[in-house]
């Protein structure tokens, strides 16, 4: 009875929606919904003491790339903003590259342990993953600070007399981000390697491939979805990072996240902050769509 079946399906869908409703309402109220307000605010005029004046303006969006000359009103490329964007993108890409370079061997190591110890190694990677990002940033801060462990040790051993200035540089932010986001790279890589059929390695060696050839021609192409997933998982939060650059980069080495905050604080330019937030959201969405496409291509047969 097709009509009966249709009725049952409709009822099942209604139940599905009804059960999901509280979660959707909560998220709509305190997560997704307010994003629309940000979009609206990006088209308004900044108020004198923060907040906005309800008057349409494209200055928020224009302000992302241009500054208006205060004397003749002409538009110039905003060098300071571009520097921040470039730093954000560069540091995020470098973070992704570094975490891949050390994360892949780590994931491989975990995936090739005997079943018993593998769970433990995986757990050891998971603990930092769930540990407070601020705590981990503090921890790495204490290692690289001027009076931190590294400098104290180096001075104590007499290798250097002046502390190495790492803290409050781009390098410090890079070290910090690679440190805090590494588990995000290792976990999806592990998942991909864990699914990898180890018999293919034997097949590769049996067919005269060297270790390097096996790695390049067999392993990497097959675990590619995991590589893409890990890269996106590291790149996206790196680009939006706020805590790490704030603690390790000091006030000057800002990234987009800190720049956004600035607009809602001392900068008193909420529309620009809103437009910057939307820009960040768009970049992240594009990256995620790219990921979804790559992931679907990776497994065309389910």
């Amino acid at each position: 009875m097709p009509s009966n079946e249709n009725r049952q399906r409709a009822a099942s869908a209604r139940t599905g929606w009804a059960l999901s409703a509280p979660a959707l309402l909560l998220l709509g109220f305190a997560a997704s919904g307010p994003l629309l307000i940000v979009l609206v605010y990006s088209f308004l005029t900044p108020g004198d003491y923060g907040n906005v004046v309800w008057k349409f303006s494209l200055d928020g969006w224009r302000g992302i790339l241009f500054t208006r000359d205060i004397f003749d009103g002409t538009l110039h490329l905003a060098d300071a903003n571009l520097t921040i964007f470039w730093r954000s993108v560069k540091l995020s890409l470098l973070t992704t590259a570094i975490t891949f370079a050390v994360g892949f061997p780590t994931a491989w190591f975990i995936a090739t342990r005997p079943a018993k110890s593998r769970a433990l190694w995986l757990f050891l990677i998971t603990i930092p993953f769930w540990t407070n990002l601020l705590i981990r940033t503090v921890a790495i801060n204490e290692v690289i600070r001027n009076e931190g462990i590294i400098n104290t040790l180096l001075i104590w051993t007499g290798l250097i007399t002046e502390p190495l200035r790492i803290i409050y540089t781009d390098t410090a932010v890079l070290i910090g981000m690679a440190y805090v986001y590494l588990p995000l790279m290792v976990l999806p890589l592990f998942a991909a390697i864990d699914r990898f059929d180890m018999k293919l390695l034997e097949a590769g060696y049996d067919l005269y491939a060297s270790r390097w050839q096996v790695l390049r021609r067999v392993i990497l192409p097959i675990v590619k979805p995991g590589i893409v997933a890990g890269s996106i998982l590291v790149f996206v939060p790196s680009l939006g990072a706020y805590v790490t650059p704030r603690v390790l980069g000091g006030g000057k080495n800002m990234m987009i996240g800190n720049f956004i905050e600035l607009q809602f604080g001392a900068g008193r330019n909420w529309p620009l902050g809103a437009a910057l937030s939307m820009t960040l959201l768009i970049i992240v969405t594009v990256a995620l769509l790219f990921y979804v496409r790559a992931a679907n291509r990776g497994s065309p047969h389910g």
Binding site: D197, K199, L200, E202, A203, G204, D206, L207, V218, I222
Partner: peptide, 11 residues
């Protein structure tokens, strides 16, 4: 020497 694997192990 080459092997035909039980699971085939095709790439």
């Amino acid at each position: 020497v080459n092997t035909v694997f039980q699971s085939y192990a095709l790439f």
